[in-house]
Amino acid sequence: AKPPKTVTVKVEVTNADGETQTRTVTLTNLPKDLKPGDTVTLPETGQTARIVEITP
């Protein structure tokens, strides 16, 4: 079996106070056609994050 493909992405997350924070997260099994501006759900927090940058 192939190991899951991990991708490092820079995302913007809005916290409970309405502040936008930029975080770098490593995600696995992202859709192939994901692009900056799309939103993903962070598995560890369940927060919705907007992708700023994808590092191949």
Rank of each mutant, 00 (worst) to 15 (best):
A1E: 13
A1Q: 13
A1K: 08
A1L: 10
A1D: 15
A1G: 11
A1F: 05
A1N: 12
K2Y: 14
K2P: 13
K2Q: 14
K2L: 15
K2M: 15
P3W: 11
P3H: 14
P3F: 09
P4T: 08
P4N: 12
P4H: 12
P4A: 15
K5C: 14
K5I: 15
K5T: 15
K5H: 14
T6N: 09
T6D: 07
T6I: 11
V7Y: 06
V7H: 09
V7W: 07
V7T: 10
V7G: 04
V7I: 10
V7S: 06
V7E: 03
T8S: 10
T8G: 03
T8W: 04
T8D: 07
T8E: 08
T8P: 02
V9A: 08
V9H: 00
K10V: 14
K10T: 13
K10C: 07
K10Q: 06
K10E: 04
V11G: 00
V11Q: 00
E12A: 10
E12T: 13
E12H: 08
E12K: 07
V13A: 03
V13K: 01
V13I: 14
V13L: 11
V13P: 00
V13G: 01
T14N: 05
T14A: 06
T14E: 07
T14V: 15
T14G: 03
T14K: 12
T14I: 14
T14S: 07
T14P: 03
T14H: 07
N15D: 13
N15H: 08
N15Q: 08
A16V: 09
A16P: 10
A16F: 09
D17S: 12
D17C: 11
D17V: 09
D17P: 03
D17N: 13
G18W: 02
G18D: 02
G18A: 02
G18V: 01
E19I: 12
E19S: 13
E19M: 11
E19T: 14
E19W: 05
T20A: 07
T20C: 06
T20N: 06
T20D: 03
Q21A: 10
Q21P: 01
Q21V: 15
Q21M: 12
T22K: 05
T22L: 11
T22S: 06
R23F: 14
R23H: 11
R23D: 04
T24C: 07
T24K: 05
V25R: 01
V25D: 03
V25G: 01
V25N: 01
V25T: 03
V25F: 01
V25S: 01
V25Y: 02
T26V: 13
T26N: 13
T26G: 05
T26D: 14
T26A: 06
T26K: 10
T26L: 09
L27V: 11
L27Y: 02
L27K: 02
L27P: 02
L27D: 07
L27H: 05
T28K: 07
T28D: 14
T28L: 03
T28C: 10
N29F: 04
N29M: 04
N29G: 13
N29Q: 11
L30V: 14
L30M: 13
L30G: 12
L30K: 02
L30Q: 12
P31A: 12
P31R: 05
P31W: 11
K32T: 15
K32N: 15
K32L: 14
D33Q: 06
D33V: 07
D33P: 06
D33S: 09
L34Y: 07
K35Q: 11
K35R: 09
K35L: 09
K35H: 09
K35C: 07
K35N: 08
K35E: 06
P36Q: 06
P36S: 05
P36M: 07
P36I: 15
P36E: 09
P36C: 06
G37K: 01
G37A: 01
G37V: 00
G37L: 01
G37M: 02
G37E: 01
D38R: 02
D38Y: 04
D38P: 00
D38T: 04
D38I: 03
D38E: 05
D38G: 04
T39R: 06
T39D: 05
T39I: 13
T39F: 14
V40A: 01
V40L: 09
V40S: 00
V40I: 15
T41H: 09
T41D: 06
T41R: 10
T41P: 04
T41F: 11
T41G: 03
T41M: 11
L42H: 03
L42Q: 01
L42S: 01
L42M: 06
L42D: 06
P43W: 05
P43S: 08
P43F: 04
P43D: 07
E44D: 14
T45H: 04
T45F: 06
T45M: 04
T45K: 03
T45D: 08
T45S: 09
G46D: 05
G46E: 04
G46Q: 07
G46H: 06
G46M: 06
Q47V: 09
Q47R: 05
Q47P: 01
Q47D: 08
T48A: 10
T48E: 10
T48W: 02
T48S: 11
T48M: 12
T48H: 09
A49K: 00
A49W: 01
A49C: 04
A49H: 02
R50G: 01
R50N: 04
R50F: 04
R50L: 10
R50Y: 04
R50E: 04
R50T: 12
I51H: 00
I51C: 01
I51N: 00
I51P: 00
I51T: 01
I51G: 00
I51F: 05
V52N: 01
V52A: 03
V52Y: 00
E53N: 06
E53H: 06
E53A: 10
I54L: 07
I54E: 02
I54K: 01
I54V: 09
I54A: 02
I54T: 03
I54C: 03
I54Q: 02
T55G: 12
T55V: 14
T55P: 08
T55M: 15
T55K: 09
P56G: 12
P56I: 11
P56N: 13
P56S: 13
